[in-house]
Amino acid sequence: MRFRFRVFSLLSVLLFCFGSLAAQETTVMVRALAKDAKFIGSSIGGAKIIVRNAETGAILDQGFTSGSTGDTKLILKTPQERYGSLTDEETAGFKAELDITEPIFIEIEAHAPFNKKQTRVVSSTQLWVIPGKNITGDGVVLEVPGFVVDILSPQTHERIKSSEVVSLKANIVMMCGCPVTEGGTWDANQYEVKAILAAEGKESREIALKPTDKASTFEAETSLDKGYYTITVYAFDPVTGNTGVDKTNIIIN
């Protein structure tokens, strides 16, 4: 009888222990915030979020941030106080759901903006997550520096006669897709936008692109001698250090 009681007691203890190790779904809200701008969400295709076990590299969850870029006044024009929030229910984010049985050290990556390969960067951080202890609200916010730069003209591999004017045009937006305009929240006059014109056997030239009446659009005109040219357009903000680049190739004949 005592033996049966001991076996029963041992089984009870084992069941209790195994029960305590059952996986608990734990939520971690992850957001990507463009440097000097707003959150990266649906309007620009989102940021790809990958949550890994930092020790093994195993992916625990992944997906894309979705939602709005957030409240401009709250994010950029309101002094931040301790424990204050930068987000609301509509602000872009990705809710990672982790099934974990014990505290785990994780690494979170934001690849953003994901749909713009020439400008996509990776921002990451690491932290401990405890089973059942959700990280919500603003959650984990990863800063994403830079500009999205798209060369609009000339087109890739376009052939242009040396006697013709070469039109240089580029679209510049913040990493969240927010527009750049003269005198706006993101002031086009604050940024340095230039084209580097390079061809084999020729000295490289730089030409400044100026803002136009159309939001986020910068342009200039030039003439070029015959050759195969690589055109590099960059944007630089001397205040924040944000940078962005796009390249294309053309033929002058």
Rank of each mutant, 00 (worst) to 15 (best):
S68A: 15
A170T: 13
T119Q: 13
T119H: 14
W128C: 09
S216R: 11
G93A: 14
R52I: 00
M1P: 12
F64P: 04
T230C: 00
Y229C: 03
F16I: 13
Q190I: 04
Q126D: 00
F8W: 12
T56Y: 02
G41R: 15
L86H: 12
F8R: 13
A215K: 14
T232H: 03
M29E: 07
A34C: 03
G84M: 06
T72I: 15
R52D: 05
G84Q: 07
E158K: 08
K226S: 03
I196H: 00
I151T: 12
G201P: 13
G227T: 01
A112Y: 10
L60M: 15
M175Q: 01
D36S: 13
G241F: 07
Y234W: 08
G184C: 05
G19S: 01
D246V: 11
A208C: 00
F236Q: 01
G70N: 13
V173F: 00
A54R: 08
A37D: 13
L152K: 13
V28K: 07
I251V: 11
P238E: 08
G227E: 01
S43W: 04
G241M: 05
Q62V: 03
E182I: 06
L14C: 08
I251D: 11
V141D: 02
V148G: 02
A58I: 12
I59W: 07
I160N: 09
S167V: 06
E206S: 07
R159C: 01
I59D: 11
Q80R: 14
T27C: 03
A32D: 03
I59K: 12
T91W: 11
K214L: 11
Y234P: 00
T240I: 15
R4T: 09
G70A: 09
Y83W: 04
S204Q: 06
V13A: 03
P103N: 00
D225P: 07
T212F: 14
E25V: 10
L60F: 14
F218W: 12
N189C: 04
E107L: 02
